[in-house]
Write a protein that binds this DNA or RNA. Structure first.
Lengths: 189, 189
DNA sequence: TTACAAAACTAACGTTTGTTAGTTAATCGT
DNA sequence: ACGATTAACTAACAAACGTTAGTTTTGTAA
């Protein structure tokens, strides 16, 4: 049993509310009520509402960055790398589904250095993904469409997985990965 | 030249702010400032902040509903219908790009009957889309993957088009439609 | 030029917001 | 049994919120 800190509980509870209503529409009193305590009591564990958001968003962002670095470092083919990225997104979605909503919808409410470093991580991630696709086109493994269209189609799907995963939740993760790879890489017709 | 009402101007200005920060993070004072007037002056033209949101969201939602009804009514094949839906999304994105952000991210802040009717329109839309895919699988035009995975992959991409369209904005719409159809239907490898 | 309507203004309202200060109750190793 | 830590509490704050009321300015048509 690894002990879960009180701050961590707050982050988890808050993330569920953020997912439903968005960061700005959730008050610290809402978060406190969901935990069964008073709003002021939260401040024994956190320094600000902002801190909840940045803890949540940066944690997930780092997970994506690390995953991407792992994929880039490998010697697989571009298409195999894309497959690995699809699996990466599915794994992170399953393990951090609450945080992904905040990352997608509320990152712009980060402030200062948190915002800066998030945007950098996001840009780097996209640039790495784009380069993998370009490599695949160069080596003729991937069809010669505009790389931006391909990047966008895949990334949009992967980024909103969380909206859909819980609804049809009981699907086995490995089956989902296989289906996802098939649909995104080979199309549907 | 059709005259644009003051209320319409407010909706447009507000929608741009909503797109950047989300409905809850934008105050009526922010909207007023962006128009160069005082917050109270807005209420000569609107009855509430809520009204701005519902005007915006329901307008776009109806556009999707009408478009879907048109596609369903036709006698084309399932795959042709999917192609038409891809074009529908691109057309609406181009013409209502501000409203789509609100539709995607802020619909849950609708209230009362506006919320109810929006959810119904959305559910109906998805159900129609799903049935088209199922028909395509039955007739063996579409590969026999889980319909939900196919629906999700296509719809996620189309729904977030607005995030990406303006950034790479000056791509010709007809070229975009062709690329999109190719990538979504035939895959990338 | 006057009359009217449209659209702006100032001032204020009651609430809710995030947060701080100071205090009390519970838990725990010594 | 003790002191220390942890985590809750009440009370209050200044600022920002959506909104209303009443008034003044602006533009247009007679």
């Amino acid at each position: 049993m690894k002990p879960i800190t009180r701050k961590e509980e707050i982050v988890i509870v808050a993330s569920q509310l953020f997912k439903e209503r968005g960061y700005s529409a959730v008050s610290v009193r809402d978060i406190a009520e969901a935990m069964g305590i008073k709003a002021a009591s939260l401040y024994n564990h956190i320094s600000s509402k902002q801190e909840i958001l940045s803890t949540l968003v940066l944690r997930v962002a780092k997970e994506f960055t690390n995953g991407m670095n792992g994929v880039v470092a490998q010697k697989s083919s571009p298409v195999q790398k894309v497959e690995q990225l699809i699996e990466l997104h599915i794994d992170i979605t399953v393990n951090y589904s609450e945080g992904i909503a905040a990352l997608n919808n509320d990152w712009m409410h980060l402030e200062g250095e948190d915002l800066t470093s998030f945007v950098k991580m996001r840009d780097d991630y996209e640039e790495n993904f784009r380069n993998i696709i370009k490599d695949g086109i160069t080596s003729e493994e991937i069809k010669p469409h505009h790389p931006e269209v391909i990047l966008f189609a895949i990334l949009s799907t992967l980024r909103t997985l969380h909206l859909w995963y819980q609804k049809r939740g009981k699907l086995d993760v490995n089956i989902l990965k296989k289906d996802m790879v098939q649909v995104l890489l080979k199309g549907i017709v």
